[in-house]
């Protein structure tokens, strides 16, 4: 099957996906029909009871339920957290199919900081971040203030997120960028169906309708240098360690591939490890193909090449 055919079958009126949503609607309609069969009094009582509960809930949580900030975490997957004045996540919106594959509902009730760390943890477990490969993984964390009366909560949240990520010892070896965006950018990103983080990043460069991923943007040393210095965006830098590169060279050497020059560079102090990583990656892919991981078992499931698209 050609790549184009499979792309369209996946993304356009996907038969399997549509069947799932049809079944959900059928079940919903069946339930609706069953409820209609109850007597008028029973339905009224149920309605009054439900109204009472809702009013109680609204009364108990009115203050906390007001959303003041949005935290968009884009890896792929892309997830949007709606956060209240106490920095508690009150709503979670998966922005693409890969996000829906994670246990995103478990994020409700956590603090925004905990939820952000948990998203990174879940993405790593699911294979979207792989600390054991030669790819630079990026996590974009973007905060948006949606409370027109007060920006302070969101500003403080942004600072706390930078702090916890910079000092988060439990995080995998991944680059994390923390940014701010205006509400208008958030609306525009949603309208264009682009993850907010990508939308903000792409707003920083000229492009001819081609959207850069975070990896592509930051792989340009000029971009990386300018924005690290100017905006302190990159709060956590992955350190694809010498040990990891060494293991890749060992595997190549084990298959009688000549890595002497690369080995020398690895052992040379002051060597540009980024450039070396890319050269080792090129040799690896030329030898084993793109899908082969260091453990020889192929790339982890769910590892995409690009951030996804909302509403996939």
């Amino acid at each position: 099957m050609t790549k184009l055919k499979s792309t369209f079958e996946e993304n356009v009126l996907n038969q399997g996906e549509l069947l799932e949503s049809i079944q959900t609607k059928i079940t919903a309609k069946s339930r609706k029909n069953k409820i209609r069969k109850f007597s008028t009094i029973a339905v009224s009582l149920l309605a009054v009871f439900a109204l009472g509960i809702t009013m109680m809930q609204m009364g108990a949580f009115t203050k906390e339920a007001k959303i003041v900030s949005i935290v968009a975490v884009d890896i792929n997957p892309s997830i949007e957290l709606s956060v209240d004045a106490n920095s508690v996540v009150v709503k979670v919106k998966p922005m693409n199919q890969d996000a829906r594959s994670l246990d995103y509902k478990s994020l409700v009730g956590l603090s925004a900081e905990e939820a952000t760390l948990k998203i990174i943890e879940m993405a790593t477990e699911a294979g979207f971040i792989d600390p054991e490969d030669l790819e630079e993984d990026y996590v974009l964390v973007t905060t948006v203030n949606v409370d027109d009366e007060d920006e302070e909560e969101t500003e403080e949240l942004n600072e706390r997120l930078k702090d916890i990520i910079e000092n988060g010892g439990e995080l995998p070896d991944v680059n994390v960028v923390v940014m701010k965006a205006e509400k208008i950018a958030w609306f525009e990103a949603n309208d264009k169906k682009v993850p907010l983080g990508m939308y903000v990043i792409n707003g920083m460069v000229q492009h001819d309708g081609v959207w850069y991923t975070a990896g592509e943007f930051f792989s340009n040393p000029e971009n990386k240098k300018n924005y690290e210095k100017k905006n302190e965006l990159l709060v956590r830098k992955a350190d694809k360690t010498i040990g990891l590169l060494d293991r890749f060279l060992d595997r190549l050497e084990g298959d009688d591939i000549d890595v002497a020059a690369l080995r020398t560079r690895l052992e040379t102090e002051g060597e540009d490890l980024d450039a070396l990583r890319l050269d080792i990656k090129a040799l690896w892919e030329a030898t084993y193909g793109e899908e082969e991981g260091i453990n020889g078992n192929g790339k982890p499931k769910g590892k995409p090449e690009n951030p996804g698209n909302p509403n996939d």
Binding site: K3, L4, S6, T7, E10, P304, N306, G308, N309
Partner: peptide
């Protein structure tokens, strides 16, 4: 040539 791209890239 397009065969070598990913579905996500193409669909984007």
């Amino acid at each position: 040539a397009i065969q070598h791209a990913t579905s996500d890239e193409i669909w984007g």
